[in-house]
Design a protein around this nucleic acid. Structure first.
Lengths: 217, 217
DNA sequence: GATTTATAGTGAAAAAAATCACAAAAAAAC
DNA sequence: GTTTTTTTGTGATTTTTTTCACTATAAATC
């Protein structure tokens, strides 16, 4: 039961959700592997490790599988999330439709200069950074997104920790250090692009098909 | 020389750039490790593997180090990149300032319905998807970003491949398969958030400080 | 200029992760 | 109802990745 395996399980769950809404009922380790980008053996091994079993020659029942994964990984109830930083990235995330489907709700955005933003119909409201603490404490919010410039990221992190945020996705292009008190997932958009560029410029595309994904195919 | 190691080298380069602009001249494996989120041993091992050496008790000269890394990984000349999809994410990336510093230039965006967008001062222009192929071929662009809804992603990928794009960062929440002809880096924003949520909901924050980063501390 | 100290460098060991190879069983075909 | 086929399940093996434990060396100190 390692970190990587857990992350894969999340991916399986995610993919299964999608397949489910597409109307699929049954799935083979093969198909799931393909959807997630790993090998079929890996899928079965992961399941085996967590005591998930299917039917020999019958594959897996998708809804039962989702059920099991939910039981294992904690059914994700609706999670309220705040964003700090109302710039390009922050705004995009505020408006992004993809979260809702997965039970994630962006409830507010905080910015140093909220006067720039006026609330439009159906949009997330932007508040002053000073209001973060009270808001987060009052609503017992545990998850936050950092979408501020590099220079402000560390300071914003401190604010969030003080407010009681426990998990963060950080989009500022600087690595923020997690702690026992707070899990941080650093996502560096520039680096994601640079990685691809590197592989292309150096003609290494033959070497790999995908990046970060560790499968055959 | 494995994929992970290459990606780490890219991270080192990135971090060194930042440290350099901040005025640092010298660095120890320790510091770099910390900036990137790995162990000092790992940094030294990676360097050793690629024949990069520093000075005993003197650390590494940052500019020389960058030089070496550039030599090794191909100096990144200005790279022109196109975006497909002018929605929330696409728009954010178009406006995002962070790319320029790293020699990445977003030169155009393509959308099914470009009439929604009117070009403003200093902004990237949005064109019809049909123009993608000619544009990309004419300017010999090799790198593209997919920022369309899930449903359209596969089709857009096909368009891009036909146009001669060789490397892609895909933000649609579906795994696109790379090939010998095209490297794909799938970035799933929802999943990044879900991963954090999972660790928090299950109280596993003690288990890890960071996600995707495999270091101590 | 000898001694101490901090840091790089690296082969060896350990740990982690992935893959293989094959058994078990259910379904399908005959 | 027997045989074949397909797919799961998993111990064993291999490969990959990381860490350890130590040496070498340059700088700093005394």
């Amino acid at each position: 039961m390692n970190k990587k395996c857990i992350i894969r399980l999340l991916r399986y769950k995610n993919a299964l959700h999608r397949l489910n809404t597409l109307g699929f009922v049954k799935i083979f380790s093969d198909n799931l592997a393909d959807a997630v980008g790993v090998t079929a053996t890996q899928v079965r091994k992961d399941f085996s490790l967590f005591g998930i079993s299917g039917n020999k020659r019958g594959g897996y029942q998708i809804d039962a599988l989702i059920e099991k994964l939910n039981g294992l990984m904690g059914k994700d109830e609706l999670q309220e999330v705040v964003i700090v930083g109302g710039g390009n990235i922050g705004t995009a995330l505020m408006k992004y439709k993809g979260f809702e489907k997965e039970g994630i709700k962006i409830v507010a955005c905080f910015d140093i200069d909220p006067s720039k933003y006026q609330k439009k119909e159906k949009e997330v409201s932007v508040m002053a950074l000073e209001e973060l603490k009270d808001f987060v404490k009052a609503r017992k919010i545990k998850i936050g997104i950092i979408a501020v410039p590099e220079i402000a990221a560390q300071q914003v992190l401190d604010h969030m920790l003080a407010a009681g945020i426990k998990g963060i996705v950080n989009f500022a292009p600087i690595r923020l250090r997690g702690s026992a008190d707070c899990v941080i997932n650093n996502v560096n958009l520039v680096l994601e692009l640079e990685t691809v560029i590197y592989f292309i410029v150096n003609g290494l595309n033959k070497m790999i098909g995908e990046i970060h994904e560790d499968q055959k195919s």
